[in-house]
Computed example of a mutant assay.
Amino acid sequence: MAAPLTMHFDVSGDLLAGARDCEAEVFLRWYGNSREQLAEEYGPYEDSSAFLCIADEHGDVLAAARLVAPGGASGLKTLTDVGREPWNVDGARSARAAGAELETLWDVATIGVRRQSADTARLSLALYHGIVNVCRANGMSGFVAVLDERVRRLLDSVGIVSRTLPGASAAPYLGSPSSTPVYVLRNYMFDQQRREFPDAYRLVTLGHGLDGIAVPGLDHFRYDRFTDADLARWQTGELADLPIMA
């Protein structure tokens, strides 16, 4: 039987170091990004970055995603980068035109699974489930990302269907030959996935079938750097948590 795996959010210490190592390994392999380049790109967002990761029983990180929460000094990386070449689009204006609430919009900055992992598909699906849990636990109204087209197709196939930010298009980006600035609105995503991708909804959104991966309760996905007032406002207003239906 495979060693049990555990999901963690907003990690620190050895798990954080392992998540960074995982990110660096994956992005060097796929896009040729060095650790120095990653530090230059994501350093301005460290104050609002949180890593989601999956580790084995020895604490070795096999898969990781970097999320950037709203409210940081540098904003969201996707909305900053879309304002530069090759897009030159006002990120905040574009997101608002798409119907996004900037105060509760997150950034899925990086996501990856180590090459030596025996079950990359399952680990990828588990990371997607973790992102859904972060969404639910923190009143996230949606997220933005710059997605390599290969990754975008994978997400589309499990019902996490993204749309291109207004004014943007596919273009080379940080070693990717074709990446697109996209957005996903939470309400639409859950509803569409439940109707059109029922199997993926059960697996990715509900987490049914992620055998061998221990997923903590929803409270463990709370971003502790938010204030109680932030969370209360989101959870009692229009962004109250959607019912999750089996």
Rank of each mutant, 00 (worst) to 15 (best):
R115I: 11
T164S: 12
A64D: 00
L185G: 05
W106I: 06
Y201E: 01
T80C: 13
S141K: 03
G13K: 03
T227I: 05
G212N: 01
V182M: 06
H208V: 06
V204E: 04
E238S: 14
L231K: 11
E149Y: 09
T205G: 01
H220A: 13
Y31V: 08
L62M: 08
L239E: 09
Y223F: 13
A232V: 09
G167M: 05
A232H: 13
A109D: 09
G112C: 08
Y31G: 07
A214W: 04
F197P: 02
F190I: 02
N187E: 15
L16T: 03
A145L: 00
A170P: 09
L62S: 02
Y42M: 07
H129T: 02
S49Y: 04
V134F: 07
V89S: 10
S49L: 08
V68T: 10
M245W: 13
T6E: 08
E85W: 10
A92V: 11
R163G: 11
L218H: 09
G43W: 13
G59R: 02
Y45W: 08
A63E: 02
G209D: 04
H129I: 01
G212M: 08
F143N: 04
L123M: 09
E46T: 05
G43C: 10
M140L: 08
F9M: 05
L15W: 02
A98M: 12
M7H: 00
D14M: 03
D119Q: 08
R115E: 15
A55W: 00
Y45S: 01
I244L: 15
E238R: 15
I54F: 05
L218Q: 12
E23W: 03
I244V: 13
A121P: 10
H220P: 01
Y188E: 15
L165W: 05
H220F: 10
R29D: 12
S179I: 04
L16I: 04
I111C: 10
L165A: 03
V26D: 05
D107W: 03
A240M: 10
D241R: 11
V161I: 11
P181E: 07
Q192W: 13
A92H: 14
D47A: 03
G139H: 06
F190S: 02
R122T: 13
D211L: 10
V82P: 01
L102C: 05
A39K: 14
V132E: 03
A171T: 03
D199M: 06
H129W: 03
V11S: 01
L239Y: 11
G217P: 04
E41N: 12
V182Y: 07
R114K: 14
G175A: 04
Y31L: 13
V82A: 06
A65Y: 05
S48H: 08
F9P: 01
P4M: 08
V26C: 08
